[in-house]
């Protein structure tokens, strides 16, 4: 399974692998927002946590259809399904690879983007913490969406429609942690909710993803 993870990471780094695309997309969203709302630092710093979380979520969404589509097209998915690896392990590794190539760079770069959004100083720690706890859930839920739409031509839009509603709880509590942090308020409650959601989907959704993949491979 480690071999699968290493292969996916290596593929992401090579030409056309899409590593960094999500990050660049995040940067563009965050850069465009001040143009859209005008140069009022007060307003910007008020909406910064929400915009940063929304940007991270959309950046994550952008790369989801690559999780299984490429392996489906070249036949690797069939071969992986007949390999000794359990499908549950395969989807978990795929989600982990997606998180390392998309979620983790967002977490690391988010303080920089916070500056662009004139995020209040107290908000940086909670923002990074909330993204660190929330983005794994985005990858795992996204892997489930990708498994549902594998094999569909141009299934990307359908997948977005399926996945976005499932992102709502993570977005609510993630943005809430970042917002309360920016205001200097207590963050423990939404942080625990966010961590709970992530832990729950990481524990349960790989089984669902593997099940729908089995059906889709028939």
């Amino acid at each position: 399974m480690i071999a699968l993870l290493i292969r996916d990471l290596r593929l992401a780094m090579r030409a056309g692998g899409g590593f960094g695309l999500g990050l660049a997309f995040f940067l563009i969203v965050v850069t465009l927002v001040p143009f859209g709302v005008g140069p009022q630092t007060g307003l910007l710093s008020k909406i910064a946590p929400g915009i940063l979380w929304l940007g991270a979520l959309l950046a994550c969404l952008l790369s989801l259809d690559r999780i299984f589509a490429l392996d489906w097209e070249d036949g690797s998915l069939d071969l992986l399904a007949t390999s000794p690896l359990p499908l549950e392990g395969i989807v978990t590794m795929k989600a982990l690879a997606h998180w390392i190539t998309t979620g983790l760079p967002l977490v690391i770069a988010s303080p920089l983007f916070g500056v662009l959004m004139s995020l209040p100083q107290a908000g940086y720690g909670p923002l990074v913490l909330s993204l660190l706890l929330g983005t794994p859930a985005l990858s795992v839920v996204g892997t489930f969406g990708a498994a549902l739409t594998v094999g569909l031509k141009r299934g990307g839009l359908l997948m977005s429609l399926l996945v976005l509603p499932l992102y709502v709880p993570t977005l609510i509590f993630g943005a809430e942690v970042a917002r309360r942090g920016a205001e200097g308020a207590e963050i423990a409650t939404p942080l625990l909710m966010l961590a709970g959601i992530s832990a729950g989907v990481i524990a349960l959704l790989p089984f669902a993803s593997a099940a729908v993949l089995r059906v889709n491979l028939r």
């Binding site: 593929l11 690797s76 069939d78 007949t82």
Partner: peptide
């Protein structure tokens, strides 16, 4: 017990 090989070879072009 099965090793399956089909029309698609499952190769990664960049590897």
């Amino acid at each position: 017990a099965m090793a399956y090989a089909a029309h698609a070879d499952g190769l990664k072009a960049t590897l």
